[in-house]
Amino acid sequence: MPSLSIKRLSVLALPFAAFSAIAGQVQAQEWTPDGSVEFIAPANPGGGWDTLVRTMSRVIQQEELADENYAAINVPGGGGAVAWAQIARDEGNPQKLFATSPPMILVPLAGASRYDHTDFTPVARLITDYSIVLVDADSDYQTLEDLLNAMEEDPGLSVGGGSAPGSMDHISIAGLASAAGLDAAAVNYIPFSGGGDAMTNLMGGHIEAVITGAGESVGQLGEGSQLRALGVSSEERLGGELAEIPTYKEQGVDYTFDIWRGVMGTPDMPEEAVSYYENLFAEMLETDGWQEARDQLGWLDAYQDSEAFGAFLDDQQALFSNVLSELGLLGE
């Protein structure tokens, strides 16, 4: 739907375009956006994508990194599929970006979107979060090994997560089980409507364990907590309040899982636009405003430029489709 307004903008911009073409020959090849940039969160206000989009546009504005306005636009529906279908139609538009994360890979793999990550232009990976395994503070499971052993003995052991089967949390725990030599498909994964919902059920003793985002669980851990963290999916230990939680690797399970977030653009976005945004976002990560927001939201910087991000996405797709096929959930 916003494609039309962009068309209108480009009509208005025609004389300017002609002018800048001449100017471009004189100056160096420096591309800048012409008017405001549409920055799409493919979900309703309030979620992870939305928070990323709004935080970024605020920091860019506050720190005066760009003259243009980065307008946050929500296009909810279908776990992102509605927005992707819309953006895919806007080929080559240099002023349309969207926030992205593992569902960009998972939703198409499940067969719920016609477009996958290869249809869009990777711009940059920005931040990451990790999975965390939680149990009740009074539970007998002291280490990840305890829990995995119990899961092996009793496949009915319920592990709650914040998303549907075949999506992020399920893949994360199934991959962990598989790396530890268990049958991934045998994990009794119970989907809840969000990580918070799953954690409440854990506190109430309705389920045995929970897998969720480490950032989401920070508020639940620490002194006097009713929950105990058994492991995080990062390569190395995390900082801050989560520093005492051992990684899976430390506990002998060679498995990591990233909940990355980044920015992608329209199909075949012009190269000069991509490199402009790459630089802009790299610069943004250095600002105080960003670092303050990042720390409060429990995010970790994990910058990758367009090329590296693209390769990373391909790897992720291979990894996820392995786990999904082990689960028997690969869409056609």
């Binding site: 039309l4 307004s5 209108r8 946050a72 636009i73």
Partner: peptide, 9 residues
């Protein structure tokens, strides 16, 4: 409220 509405013509 900073909500985007289509501007059209």
């Amino acid at each position: 409220m900073d909500v985007y509405l289509p501007t059209g013509v």
